[in-house]
Design a protein around this nucleic acid. Structure first.
Length: 393
RNA sequence: GGGGGUGUACUCAAGCAGUCAACGAGGGCAGACUGUAAAUCUGCUGGCCGUAGGCCUACGUAGGUGCAAAUCCUACCGCCCCCA
């Protein structure tokens, strides 16, 4: 169930509450990515201290674990496979595994990811080697294994994992795919969406996914058809060049039901967050806060810092003055975090990365908190302007 | 006193006559990371000239051999180990 409490007057930004069997989520909300149903280097107790509302895990990566679990099918009420794995009873999502067909089976070889430079050619020809896509799903190779994943199987696995919110199995395209290919992908995603709805047990919330690449016609076509289906919410997927998020959202959002939640898949840099919220997005997931934390990039209101730099060798300040995250409130100096994270890599310790994770997750959750407040006070645009101008890069 | 070893750029550590401004690692510097095969990846790291290319200074010190030396010889200096 989703309730919008406040709509911004100047933009499409909105604030509300999304209710799930494991609790309520105040929106807009960041969704952190715990692919394997865990966060590297963090305990469940740690996660509790980051103000995290919602976590997304991955169907592809949990596939074997979930199906091997003998505790029966998870009902999205009490302790599901995923909440047990997390050690936390908080709202969860699972991605359908559709993205992995791009990132694992295809993207790596072709150097294609979710985002590409703006100069990327969208009509380049390339080969989707060893991948066969049919109406039933995708045959592909992974680590020398022949695999198959499709809408029915994805739904089966996601039901077993038991997240509160699950996604329909979709066909993501790459920025290199042409119009014709994207058109087929949209049609296939539609067909798969209907299969997913048929297999849907109503214990969970099922979100359909809009595709269409960077093509306006296709995005609108996809938004219309997916948006008209009885999903509980909608995901917006695909890949694009870096400057196209906003434009794409403006095409899509008008065709999605106003009363249902919208999730933007895999987007979450600081500037992107504001663009997403401004265009009517309620939740979005991204690896940026956690991956970059592990790589030593720490966020503050004035920009980010690479804590591994020698400049912090003797820096006794906390990451950010006034920050209430565990790291900063424990008064861990930058020099110590630097020392720890640099030796983490060598000694297989994780203390430094943990401090970084605790900070970044807190940072992004706090930012979203501020965004929610700004929307409720009718000051979203002002807050955005102020924050962006103070944030370097 | 006798015997053996060793001295390489910020550090560790290869090289043992030409392809060496010198492998590799660390460190440093710069950059990347967007539905996580990512505690990861990429580039640079003697000086000067805009890069290409070139010039200069460099492998403990001082000489020597040789077309050519970090690499061979001699002496010296410094460290290390073993025997007395």
């Amino acid at each position: 169930m989703f309730k919008v409490f406040k709509k911004d007057k100047k933009t499409k930004a909105r604030s509300g509450v999304l209710s799930t069997p494991h609790g309520d989520i105040k929106t807009p909300s960041y969704v952190f990515v715990g692919t394997y149903g865990k966060f590297r280097h963090l305990t469940s107790g740690d996660i509790k201290k980051t103000k995290t509302q919602l976590i997304i895990a991955n169907t592809f990566h949990l596939w074997d674990f979930a199906l091997a679990d003998r505790d029966g099918a998870s009902k999205a009420s009490e302790k599901t496979f995923l909440t047990k794995r997390l050690g936390l009873n908080i709202p969860t999502m699972t991605d359908s595994g559709g993205f992995q067909v791009l990132s694992l089976a295809f993207g790596n070889k072709n150097k294609v990811g979710k985002f590409m430079t703006d100069s990327a050619k969208t009509d380049a020809t390339y080969k989707r080697s060893k991948i066969k896509i049919t109406k039933k799903g995708v045959h592909f190779n992974f680590k020398g294994r022949k695999m198959f994943l499709g809408p029915e199987l994805s739904m089966k696995i996601q039901e077993k994992i038991g997240a509160d919110i699950i996604f329909a199995f979709d066909h993501i395209t790459s920025p290199l795919d042409n119009f014709k290919y994207n058109k087929k992908a949209v049609e296939l995603t539609d067909e798969w969406a209907k299969i997913c709805l048929k297999k849907y047990n109503k214990n969970q919330l099922l979100f359909g996914i809009v595709q269409g690449g960077t093509y306006k016609d296709l995005r609108i076509k996809s938004a219309k058809s997916i948006g008209s289906l009885p999903f509980d919410g909608f995901g917006i997927g695909g890949s694009y060049t870096k400057k196209q998020i906003s434009k794409m959202l403006k095409w899509i959002i008008p065709y999605l039901p106003e009363e249902k939640p919208r999730h933007l898949l895999g987007v979450g840099k600081v500037a992107d967050i504001f663009e997403a919220v401004q265009n009517g997005i309620d939740t979005f997931d991204c690896v940026i806060p956690t991956r970059e934390a592990r790589h030593g990039r720490l966020y503050t209101k004035t920009g980010f810092m690479d804590i591994r730099r020698g400049a912090y060798l003797k820096d006794k300040k906390v990451i950010e003055k006034g920050c209430d995250c565990l790291t900063c409130s424990s008064k861990i100096p930058r020099s110590k975090i630097r020392e720890l994270i640099k030796s983490d890599n060598i000694n297989q310790n994780t203390a430094g990365q943990r401090w970084c994770l605790m900070h970044n997750m807190w940072f992004f959750n706090s930012l979203l908190e501020e965004i929610r407040v700004s929307i409720s006070k009718g000051r979203f645009t002002e807050f955005k302007k102020k924050f962006i101008s103070g944030f370097d890069r």
